[in-house]
Design a protein around this nucleic acid. Structure first.
Lengths: 190, 190
DNA sequence: CCGATATGATACAAGTATGTCTCACTTAAT
DNA sequence: ATTAAGTGAGACATACTTGTATCATATCGG
């Protein structure tokens, strides 16, 4: 088993990614000095691990996507149907507030990177496929454009993120609210 | 009728606010040089009209709120019920993509200002009142927390904004999708 | 244990944004 | 037409961030 990285370098990277996520979530214009000192490493070390500011942001963003992918990996095998898969998406992604916030805030910075573009495209394609499958199975109303449903899910993640920022509500409860709203809305039917 | 501002100053301010909105929407870190030259005025003039970068951003943000307030002013008189008022909110605010984007992107910068805080608080209170009125009238499901409904509306604005960025869909259509989703969700009822 | 490698601290260069100031010139107000 | 005010252009000081380089020290891997 070949370890390409020295244990010290690995520690530095981990600390820098964590500090970067935190500081950049607080303020997307946080300086590399801020991030390095918050990580407890020298600024020079940051530059040794990440050539530029953008490379650091990119590394963190890719880590966020990995975490999301990992959280949703089990869905495909377990979901009983398309709607259940969407329910599980809310359940598994809603708790990842830091990752969601990071990707949302720094989208503008990272979206031009080809690797990020590729990941985004893959995710979007998966969502489109899932929604169209749900439509075909009669679980989702065909009257809505697929693109709207996909964007709606994004919007519900956002609403859930805001909700979690505001109060002492827990992710499970919020995910439930989001999914219920997704299915039946909030008006009284008559 | 007293005009406190010279016509030239008024022109400069108008051009700077417009250019600021555009440039800062493209890139929240746009420089004051960028904004001034895009507005067709000298950088010194920008500083004459707005003491600091933050003052400019603040002025634009307040203008955005004014535009939103203006767009929604007619609702109270016209709406037939609470749900209809919410429908009209989607209808009137969804087209204001530039204002929505600006307030969303620069929230972090402006939220510490007392004037902005006051406006935000007022808007939130109005939304809470509207939702609780809708609940009382049996138009909205009391099982949902009011805070969730308020955040949901914000999330649907966001989804609508994304939808309008992506395709050739028009605001009226998107507002309709958002409101229908708000009421009944997107799943097939059984 | 010892060689290789990462680190911290620091100095340094370069670029850039902010904010102030001045002055000649143009435009508005009455 | 005359006065008052705003403007454009540019110089200037300041501060800050990025990115590079160096060197003594500490830590890792084998």
């Amino acid at each position: 088993m070949i370890n390409r990285l020295d244990a010290r370098a690995k520690r530095s990277q981990k600390a820098l990614m964590k500090a970067g996520m935190e500081k950049l979530n607080e303020n997307p214009e946080a300086t590399l000095s801020d991030i390095a000192s918050h990580a407890g490493v020298g600024r020079a070390t940051l530059y040794r691990q990440y050539e530029t500011r953008e490379k650091l942001i990119l590394a963190i963003a890719i880590d966020c996507f990995d975490i999301i992918d990992e959280a949703t990996a089990s869905i495909e095998g377990k979901a009983r149907n398309a709607l259940d898969a969407i329910r599980m998406m809310f359940e598994h992604i809603t708790p990842l507030t830091r990752e969601f916030q990071f990707l949302m805030n720094l989208e503008r910075v990272i979206k031009n990177d080809p690797q990020i573009a590729s990941i985004n495209k893959k995710h979007r394609t998966q969502m489109i496929d899932l929604v169209e499958y749900a439509k075909k199975k009669g679980e989702v109303d065909k009257a809505y454009p697929t693109s709207w449903i996909v964007n709606l899910i994004e919007g519900l993640f956002y609403a859930g993120w805001v909700q979690l920022q505001q109060e002492g509500s827990n992710p499970e409860e919020v995910a439930g609210l989001a999914f219920k709203t997704f299915c039946q809305g909030v008006a009284i039917q008559r």
